[in-house]
């Protein structure tokens, strides 16, 4: 009996080891490497930074350069790029939520064969390359593109709208690409919703709108938070969408990082930018996570 119990606990341990190992290999080790480079100095060599540790006649010499971090504080460019990234991610997340919530609601309330079909349609775009889909938006939004062609043919506008290379194009791009990440957790949350609660609310005289605001919405907040996080977090570090759809004055941190790494060949500064970005993302993440667990506790 005891042996079996021990075996079972070993098995359990093994199961928890898999994600730990995964995190260790694919998150912790790269993180340490980046952290290490961020404390080095750029130079003209292969790779283009000075080693941190050096054996000099049997003495281990360690040189840590915190100047890279001070430099980031010194130049307002980095601070404003972080803020700009958070702002663009936030606006895009709100866009995605506003579009995604009604979609998820319709899917969750649809009857069976239709529901599966609708879910499939949400996931379907993933079968095409992400890059191709963003390129497709260039064709839609550009000056001589489909959108302007349509609007002008309908006589709604006389001059083409400049949408491409503006922040609006970035919001559209992010909202479009990340929509499934918003819809799926919302769908999960909405389909778990106990319909009898809505009936009760109706019996007590609530209009559909009041029922929605006081019953449905509060009960699906965990879905809203999960979906928003899945959109917000990757959107902060987004590089491809602002690079292809955004204007040159859309300065997100991904672009700044690219500049440091490629244009300046300054891997140490680029690494420092990445490390700070991690903290910019982890901050709001932990805050939202705390709200989420509080709600879940309250619901139990």
């Amino acid at each position: 009996m005891r042996l079996i119990a021990k075996f079972k606990s070993l098995q359990r341990d093994w199961v928890s080891w898999v994600p730990t190992l995964w995190l260790g290999i694919f998150f912790l080790i790269p993180f340490v490497v980046v952290l290490k480079i961020s404390l080095s100095q750029a130079t003209i060599a292969m790779p283009p930074y000075l080693p941190l540790f050096e054996w000099l006649e049997g003495i281990l010499e360690i040189r840590l350069d915190f100047g890279n971090y001070l430099f980031l504080i010194d130049d307002p460019l980095y601070g404003s790029a972080y803020l700009e990234s958070v702002r663009i991610a936030l606006v895009s997340t709100i866009f995605t939520l506003v579009i995604g919530y009604p979609m998820a609601y319709v899917i969750a309330t649809a009857k069976e064969p239709r529901r599966t079909l609708l879910l499939l349609l949400v996931i379907l775009p993933f079968w095409t390359s992400f890059l191709l889909r963003v390129y497709a938006w260039i064709a839609i939004l550009k000056t001589n593109g489909l959108l302007n062609g349509l609007l002008m043919a309908l006589g709604l506008i006389s001059e083409p709208l400049v949408v491409l290379q503006t922040d609006l194009a970035v919001y559209i791009g992010i909202a479009y690409t990340y929509l499934p990440f918003m819809v799926l957790p919302l769908y999960a949350s909405l389909s778990k919703l106990d319909r009898t609660l809505l009936e009760a609310s109706e019996d007590l005289g609530a209009t559909p709108w009041i029922s929605f605001v006081t019953v449905t919405l509060p009960l699906t907040i965990p879905g809203v938070i999960a979906g928003s996080l899945l959109v917000f977090v990757p959107a902060i570090g987004e590089f491809v969408i602002p690079a292809l759809l955004g204007g040159n004055d859309t300065l997100m941190i991904g672009k700044v990082l690219w500049n440091e790494f490629f244009a300046n060949r300054d891997w140490p500064i680029a690494s420092a930018v990445a490390i700070i970005m991690l903290f910019v993302i982890v901050g709001p993440l932990m805050w939202l996570n705390r709200i989420n667990s509080k709600i879940e506790e309250a619901q139990l």
Binding site: A81, T250, L251, R265
Partner: peptide
């Protein structure tokens, strides 16, 4: 190079 690229970013973004 660093000063030049910083200038370039300022030209492109106004920052």
């Amino acid at each position: 190079d660093r000063i030049m690229n910083r200038t370039w970013t300022r030209i492109k973004t106004g920052q």
